[in-house]
Design a protein around this nucleic acid. Structure first.
Lengths: 342, 342
DNA sequence: GAATAATTCAAAAACGTTTTCGGAAATCTC
DNA sequence: GAGATTTCCGAAAACGTTTTTGAATTATTC
């Protein structure tokens, strides 16, 4: 590969002049610069990013971490759209993306891997749980490495995160059901620990309270974002509460599972019971019946997150704060007024 | 960040000794080694991958290129599964993945970007077309950079590709339809240029010929892998050939589009007409009716491709050859014997 | 106990850049 | 035309590693 040295030799100047010429320094004669640029093109020269980043401490690379647990990382319902946004926005700004694969390397942590590879910042798509994970996250938060996460509350001088407005999203959905006339509305929640699930649960409660309805813990079940577990939860729910007329499942995958089981049990959706999902994944519109759901703006989440990260990288004094993206209620065919109202 | 120098100073030895100690060279005393390792741990030392790769010319990084056109790269129907396989297999072997984002940087080509970033090899997920692209691909093939592609016939000393057995896959599907009793079988092809489409078309023809049926060009239409175009093609097809009893659409997306349009036109699938897809994407099983389709083994394609690439990287004398992965016919509810047979 | 062999380590060059510093040559000022 | 500026460029250090070479020390052999 052609190096700066060869160019220097051919042009009859020193390497430092070549470097300055190519990097648009002002203290190089126009003719010299032209000559150097010309030779560089002839030699099909491109600077070695690794040599450069060794001295500049900037790699124009952003590290990517995907979780391994179910429903995080690759299985995250909107991983692909987030990644697509990140690639687009980061690319326009001149950053490449490094996917860390060596997740389980003996003593490696997020921090050490970042330092080892010399990335400028870190982008996390994972759900937070597990003891070791948390230790790692704390170390990361204190490391000073710029980082940003999706749906994972990071808190450090140079860390932040992006999430949907899960509270208002859930509230909007439940309010809509109430407006349709439903009074006995159940919730299939995610897990009992994550912030995401927690916010959606609270949105559900807030809508009920606002409408003067009672919050009944009996109507809250958990499906761990899995279709199968949602099926079980749904079956238990409706067998113990035959007067339920609507369900909010806080992920489309769970909502679709719920509809399937309800259908098997002889309930008709939306005639006997309404079901609302969360996420608006592709299947939501192709499902039969198509799914009323709370859309998360995935592309926006990704692009906001990467912008936040780049800003943090490029301005050492910048202190990022979390970004909350609004949700949108998409009404389709899985919801209707309750039977007794028709 | 702690460097090898600090360790050397603390341990009272030279940097070269530290390096050799940490890299398991034999010519370092056991006690010295132990001391060095201990100090390295205390300092939470991790070697700088960039400094290392500057001298070793190995980065343990594989470059990833995704196409931008429709139906390649991110929109490739099984991008996610391929990436998942690549991440897993490459990770186990110690490679990280670099996503190239600067696609349109002025004079950059695959080759220059690879050299610039110092990746050990290149993984391509894109469909080949466009003049400039081809020039770039030729340059890449001749560059000596190890590379591998999915569904794109690369041909160079250190290049290869992985594809499904599209010929046999399509043939299997059509033979199955013939076995069900169909005689008038149409094809919704992809494009008219790509190898993938070409192979599937040939598989279709081969099955017909093998069964002694005539190949009728009138029954072949193209949908460019798009649902909308497949709808148009389907409508034109059945209006001009009312006696068609089965269709092979060479992607699930097109097959689903075809079914939708057929339904709108009053045809019942599979009672009036059978439809077979290709790919076996998630929607294939959730669609109503669920889709009989030719499954591509996506994970296998990804893992075979990355293995091929790593072998090419690690053995300079290795000359890779293309890998063809078998397809599997998945029978679901969109196919049935033709009406007159019932 | 001298010659030889084995063990252990340090010095230094190399990888390809960027960047600081200072000096030479050219230009300006009066 | 002497001094003061400005313009332009080269030398050299630095980034953090690996790797080659050779030298000092220790151990072995007879």
């Amino acid at each position: 590969m052609s190096s700066i040295k060869e160019i220097a030799k051919k042009a009859g100047v020193s390497v430092s002049t070549v470097s300055r010429a190519l990097n648009n320094y002002t203290d190089v004669n126009q003719n010299t610069r032209k000559k150097i640029i010309q030779i560089a093109q002839e030699l099909n020269y491109f600077p070695s990013a690794v040599a450069r980043s060794l001295v500049t401490k900037r790699s124009y690379t952003i590290g990517l971490f995907f979780g391994d647990q179910v429903n995080s990382g690759f299985d995250h319902p909107f991983f692909l759209e987030v990644l697509s946004a990140v690639r687009k926005v980061a690319g326009d700004a001149g950053y490449d993306l490094l996917i860390f694969t060596n997740l389980h390397k003996k003593k490696a942590t997020y921090t050490t891997l970042c330092r080892e590879r010399g990335v400028d910042g870190l982008f996390l798509i994972l759900t937070g749980d597990g003891k070791r994970k948390n230790e790692q996250l704390i170390e990361l938060q204190e490391s000073g490495i710029p980082c940003v996460a999706i749906d994972l509350p990071l808190d450090g001088e140079r860390c932040s995160y992006v999430e949907s407005n899960n509270f208002l999203g859930a509230k909007k959905a439940v309010s809509y059901l109430i407006k349709l006339g439903h009074r006995k509305i159940a919730l299939i929640g995610g897990d009992e620990v994550g912030k995401v699930s927690f916010d959606r649960l609270n949105g559900y409660r807030a809508a009920l309270i606002e409408a003067g309805l009672e919050y009944d813990p009996q109507l809250v079940r958990y499906g761990c974002y899995s279709a199968d577990q949602a099926k079980e939860a749904t079956e238990a729910l409706v067998s113990e509460n035959r007067d339920v007329t609507a369900i909010l499942a806080v992920s489309d995958v769970m909502a679709i599972g719920a509809i399937q089981r309800l259908t098997e049990l002889g309930w008709s959706v939306p005639d006997d019971i309404s079901v609302v999902g969360f996420d608006d994944i592709r299947e939501a519109s192709t499902n039969k019946p198509s799914l009323t759901t709370v859309r998360q703006c995935k592309y926006e989440m990704g692009s906001e997150a990467i912008r936040l990260l780049m800003k943090t990288i490029e301005d050492v004094s910048y202190r990022p704060s979390p970004v909350v993206i609004p949700c949108e209620l998409i009404v389709r065919d899985s919801t209707a007024p309750p039977r007794f109202q028709k």
